[in-house]
Structure formats: structure tokens, C-alpha cells
Amino acid sequence: MNVAIITFPGSNCDQDCHRSVDVAGGSPSYVWHRETSLGGADAVIVPGGFAHGDYLRPGAIARFSPIMDAVIDFARGGGLVVGICNGFQVLCEAGLLPGALLRNESLRFQSHDCRMRVERADTVYTSEYREGQVIRMPLSHADGNYYADPETLAELEDGGRVVFRYCDAGGAVSDAANPNGSLNNIGGIVNERGNVLGMMPHPDRAFDPALGSVDGLPLFTSLVGALARAEVA
């Protein structure tokens, strides 16, 4: 249950992801972006931060780091790949997830807790949540405004691929609860096959009561559990 965490120059949540996987019972390891092999990892996390300084566009240069060919091959083969925050931006730039993350509608860097409704509890990443559950975790980004063209957005909605949606404490999805202007309050999506997840908020900063929330931990225990079941099968 080895989970590779990709470290780019400018990544700053790689250690948070490492600790989250560890607490969830998995075996995390760091993979430097100049590597060309994932070293037999069972899953991959692309962590948050500012890979390559976010120059040009967030994720645009990271997407061409040497390790990304291996990540793309792994994902296309059905391997489990999670992108959190900057990692979500990298996966969109790499074409593993549809759409793009634009500048926040407010033009401000948003750094605060948010709430999201779990729209799908039947993915490999959310099996430890309940459908409709309202979870709380931090977000921290300038470019988290999810955009996709109308056809792509319809595909995501019709295919049930919106996994997390920004909401208020009561679970109501509203403009007031939308921190960045994302279309349809989208906070996280999966690809068509369901093996690639991207999300802007940080489950990796919500795995211990000392951090103010443990609502991120089920994401990692879901992932580690899925890997454990795959190992048995």
C-alpha cells in the first residue's frame, strides 16, 4: 500500500500528505519530480503548493516535469491518482481531468475553512464518507475557480462525477457558500473511470483533532482501504 507523493520545486503540502497517508495506515514515500519512475507505487498523490512558482499558469510547467509521463501512464492504466489544490491544477493541465482552475472570482487568495457536501460516497476515495455528509476542511488558493465548457460540465453532472460541492453548514449549495466562483459549486471531481480525483480543499490539513478537523482523514482511509482490498483480490 505504497503511496507515492510527488514533490516539485515549490510543493508545500507534500509533508502533510505524507503524514495523512501514514495516519490512515498506508506507506507513503516521496518521489522527486525529476524521477521518471514511480518505483512500483500503488497510488499517487500530487500535493498542494506552487509547483515551479505557478509561472505561466498553475500546473502548466509542472505538467511537463519528468515524473509526469509516469503519472499519466499510471493513471491511464487505471492507477489511483489524487491531486489536491495545486495537484488538481496539475492534473487538469496534464489532461487527466477535464476543465481548468481559473483565478478566484474575488481575485483574493482565499485561506479559510470551507464546507463541502459529499455528493458521491461510492468512489474509491469517498467510501468512508456518507453520501450527503457535510465535511469541513481548509482551503488555500488563488486559482480554484473550477471552469469547464457547457458540454463538459453536463458530462460531469450527468455522469455523477462531481464528488464534492461547496455548501453551507446545513448542506445547502449556494453562491454564498462558494469560495471561489466555481461552476456549480464544484470542489472536487473524478475522471470518467473514477480512478483520478482532483479537489481544491485540503483533506491533508484535516486529519487530526489538533488541526481543527478530522474530516479529511476518511479520504485517506478510503484510499488505503481500496488498496488493501486490491492486494487481497
Binding site: L56, A60, A100, A148, D149
Partner: peptide, 8 residues
């Protein structure tokens, strides 16, 4: 390839 994002 790199300099523009065709989505946006």
C-alpha cells in the same frame, strides 16, 4: 503544447 490553455 504549453503557452496557452485551450480550455480557457
Amino acid at each position: 503544447k504549453l503557452l496557452a490553455n485551450p480550455v480557457t
